[in-house]
């Protein structure tokens, strides 16, 4: 049930930005655009980012957020973040822009990007699992 609600939330969030602001919901592009020009009149990016950051606070008013640990080592997190940043910028999109928005528009670029992202993520996770076992 939570998986279904989550799908609705993500989908409706994307549609809100499209219907009213006329923008594609691509998080990596928004972070890039915002940091490159924080005071630009196109501050819509800042507001989407603020909504994302504040969402756990709103959520926790109504629901309980189960506690969990991020087990990945700091240096590994830095490397992972760097690869995600380089990759999303090179391919001009990430999970939101390519895998949800792009795939839903049947963009061949985004479908290919999603298949590659998923495949390499599955392979990387399982290789690390194999090596560290």
């Amino acid at each position: 049930m939570n998986y279904v609600l989550g799908g609705f939330g993500i989908g409706i969030g994307i549609l809100t930005l499209l219907f009213f602001n006329g923008k594609i919901f691509g998080v990596s592009g928004m972070i890039r655009g915002f940091l490159a020009n924080p005071l630009h009149e196109n501050s819509w990016r800042l507001f989407v980012i603020a909504g994302l950051i504040l969402s756990p606070i709103v959520y926790s008013i109504f629901f309980y957020i189960p506690s969990f640990e991020i087990k990945t080592q700091p240096i590994v997190l830095i490397v992972a973040g760097f690869l995600v940043g380089v990759g999303a910028t090179l391919s001009n999109g990430c999970t939101s822009g390519h895998s949800v928005c792009g795939v839903s528009r049947l963009s061949p670029r985004s479908i290919l990007a999603t298949l590659i992202m998923m495949a390499t993520a599955f392979i990387t996770f399982n290789l690390i699992r194999l090596i560290s076992a």
Partner: peptide, 13 residues
């Protein structure tokens, strides 16, 4: 839009 999207990420885990 950011808030609703974020709530979706939260509720789905």
């Amino acid at each position: 839009s950011g808030l609703i999207f974020g709530l979706g990420l939260l509720v789905s885990g």
